[in-house]
Amino acid sequence: MSELQMRVSDEDRERAAQQLQRAFTEGRLTQLELEDRLEIALTAKTYGDLLGLIEDLPVEQSQGGDVVELESKNGAVKRSGDWAVPRRLRVASKYGSVELDLSEAVVDHPVVDIELDLTYGSAKIILPEGGVVNVDAFQSDWGATKTSDIPSRRRHGSLYVVISGQAKYGGLTVRYPRRRWFTH
């Protein structure tokens, strides 16, 4: 399934509607065009539906908070515990590893896009129980991509993580948290 066929959220519809309203106030759309496009935006089902409404408008410059970029040249990039996961995350590491533990993180989005750019190093991503991952857009030149028994088909009510990008000399492992066994 392509990203254009993925279903949109209410937040996605609202963001598109706001962009259309800004275009109207800037004189880029007529009143009739705005009304027609808003009707479609508020009932859109897929990203493809929304893209057709805004592709002839300038790209918003005010989405700095929408994408978070993490970068390291020599050290490891690590996030774990109680941290806020952005909707889109870009991680670049030249000589280090990447570990993103989402199992205890605050995730306010049903879909999280993670783009990896790794040269010498591997990535490990830990999903919360029930999370789903799509690694179809990730390429590893000299390493393996392992997803254990994690499903790749999107499920209603489950976190859906889409991982894209590449690793030149490293791989990608996606797993659930390890179960802790306690003895009494």
Rank of each mutant, 00 (worst) to 15 (best):
M1G: 01
S2M: 11
R7P: 02
R7K: 15
R7E: 08
A17M: 02
Q19A: 14
R22D: 10
E26W: 00
R28C: 02
R28V: 06
L29N: 07
Q31H: 05
L34M: 06
E35I: 07
R37Q: 08
L38C: 11
L38R: 12
E39G: 13
K45N: 06
T46L: 00
Y47W: 15
L51K: 00
L53G: 01
E55Y: 10
L57E: 02
V59W: 09
Q63Y: 01
G64T: 04
V67G: 04
K73A: 13
N74T: 05
A76Q: 08
V77P: 01
S80V: 08
S80Y: 14
G81D: 10
W83Q: 00
A84Y: 03
V85T: 09
P86V: 02
S93I: 05
S93K: 03
K94W: 09
V98Y: 02
E99Q: 14
L100G: 08
L102M: 15
V106A: 11
H109N: 06
H109S: 06
I114V: 15
I114Q: 05
E115L: 11
L116V: 04
Y120V: 11
G121D: 12
S122R: 13
K124G: 00
I125T: 09
L127G: 03
E129G: 03
V132G: 03
V135M: 08
D136H: 10
Q139R: 10
G143C: 05
I150A: 04
S152D: 10
R154V: 12
H156W: 07
L159C: 01
L159I: 02
Y160D: 06
I163G: 07
S164K: 15
Y169Q: 12
G170M: 10
G171W: 13
L172I: 12
R175L: 04
P177G: 06
R178S: 13
R179H: 14
H184F: 13
